[in-house]
Write a protein that binds this DNA or RNA. Structure first.
Lengths: 199, 199, 199, 199
DNA sequence: AATGAATGAGGCTTCATTCAT
DNA sequence: GATGAATGAAGCCTCATTCAT
């Protein structure tokens, strides 16, 4: 059933690109990349399907823009907060809380980034941006090992353990299996430090 | 009216259901549920696409069968190895190594189960089977807390941290970012115990 | 889901061809030729799908056998009962009641023949067998016109009117819109005679 | 991932919905509902197969729209022409000629409606619209019986006989077995009246 | 710039038919 | 002769993408 109704410019609305990215984020998290249709994104963004192609070349370009954008956002945030000269124990604490703050403020974006890690539709540049935080955390741990405050295991292993623990906690939280208050978050942070700390 | 072309029964070949499940597992891990086409599975299994429908009612029924099957396999394996009367420290170690053994022996199955957690195409029975191992690990931790050997934080939180750390480690391993030898595995196990252990 | 269960000859059962024809008749009437799948027929006949191909070359061969078989049955029945020397009024009455008797005794077969008239999957021989009764009825009406007892309109037109009225009545009956008792049938017969009778 | 092949909007062409309905009508009459493939309809309508789904939710929705549309058209036409105050004999004649006029002007639509009566793919609303003309004709006959000009048989039976005769005549005409000129049509009308008229 | 009808490849699924057992 | 698993073409429908308005 078609309506010959209104075409052309609709009532002014800025941020079109932004609303497309938001809608796409929500859809991709909910149903995955291949499970999301462009018209679904358009509907959620309250625009026409064709409009998406004024801002992004393709569906793939859209996921990649989303992925890169959020990955950079979180990296910048963590780097900005990082206390350069502070003791490792303090650096660890700050990173942890910064990550929690991000994952709490932008749960969908965080879920998106975690779920879409290494997906086949991510292009080279996206994958490149991918490693920054983990590289950074690895470096921090490696420095701490030199000081002898962290276990002398492979620093990459320790980093993945802590990162995994963090993601596991957040995922359980999104999925409603876990309440998180300040005490729990701080307790978890301490537990993760204990995991890597030299005894 | 169909073409009179040659179709029909080809030379015998056993294990068809098994080879479908194997092929589907590999495809789903590689490209996700929606990213995998039935003909791709068929090709990998070296059968005709239609044959899949003799064994499974639909693509959804296939993922669910896969999910349930592997989830049960791993649960049974962990439960069978669990040392009932042993000290918690020992129980923890056994579970850890059992999980590693499974994830190493069946990396694709393990990846599949982790990636497809809580996906929208999983049906009720599949989701029901989902909680068994985590419930079990939670109970173990809760018992240890009574003994005072584990931190007095929310046992669910501790469980998710350890589980997350484990998954993080295994994922880094599949993705080639991490070498895992016996020492690394044992070191990681100790680190995870340190995470939850009372100081 | 497959079972390696019983193959080969099942408990003796004669009339396999007959039960296939019966099942096919019911299915074709209910859902049409293209709407009926061979496995559905097999299930209704309580045999394996492949078995049908021992008796019929194809689905088309099956409909055609069915069509020809019933068409001949009804024709033979009508011809057998036809009172050669009797007055036309009597001949008309006999034919009418013979048709009603058949349509009542074999409602599915009658419905099948009416619904599948001139379908594209009927082959030459089937269509050839198609005309016999109508030709016969036409001849009867033409003779009656010579006697002056029937209207001097195109005999084919009169024949189609009567035949159409008969089919309309029977169809309304199968479809539950019409009760038919002996009085109704006799009344309808008289009405049809009045339709063609010279005034 | 889809091919980057050229797709998208082709040069304008109006009346798409109408041409889909026309093409579908022709196909359904020729090969039946299950015997008609959506691509066949699309080809006949000279549009892409997918376009049909912009206008109709499914193949079933398409048949139902077709059925309802034509059924209403014919009913409106008959009702509009019906001479309310005239004698029954005249009303009968008008209805008859109106039906013939419709069946002659729109032979495919008429064939479609007759062939698809009570098919399993017709939905509730379609079946509801189905009875109007027959109910109307029945009422007319019932009134005539009160006047004593029509036989005192079940009015539904008489209606079905006349309707059946009419359909039989038209069908023979479409199928090329019968020439119909004004005299034949008028003669048939008189014959049908004679069928139901009290003697 | 925005729209959304149109396109047509491709996805899931069905089913007529074959053939090893 | 009977079986039913296997085949693969074809059916219905979806959806990424284009482009006239």
């Amino acid at each position: 059933m078609q309506t010959k109704a209104k075409r052309g410019r609709p009532p002014e609305r800025a941020d079109r690109k932004e609303s497309i990215l938001d809608a796409a984020l929500a859809c991709f998290v909910e149903r995955g990349f291949h499970g999301t249709a462009i018209p679904q994104i358009a509907e959620k963004a309250d625009i026409a399907a064709g409009t998406i192609y004024h801002y992004f070349d393709s569906k793939e370009a859209l996921v990649n823009a989303l992925y890169r954008g959020w990955k950079q956002t979180i990296a910048q945030r963590v780097f900005a907060a990082f206390p350069q000269g502070a003791p490792v124990r303090e650096q660890f604490r700050v990173m942890w809380h910064e990550m929690v703050a991000f994952a709490t403020a932008e749960p969908t974006a965080f879920a998106f980034i975690e779920l879409h890690n290494h997906a086949s539709y991510l292009d080279g540049p996206s994958l490149a941006v991918d490693r920054t935080i983990k590289d950074f955390a690895h470096a921090m741990i490696a420095r701490a090992q030199v000081e002898g405050v962290v276990k002398p295991l492979d620093a990459w292993l320790l980093m993945e353990l802590v990162f995994g623990a963090f993601v596991g906690m957040m995922r359980a939280h999104w999925e409603g299996r876990l309440q998180l208050d300040a005490a729990a978050i701080a307790g978890a942070e301490q537990a993760c430090w204990d995991a890597i700390a030299a005894r």
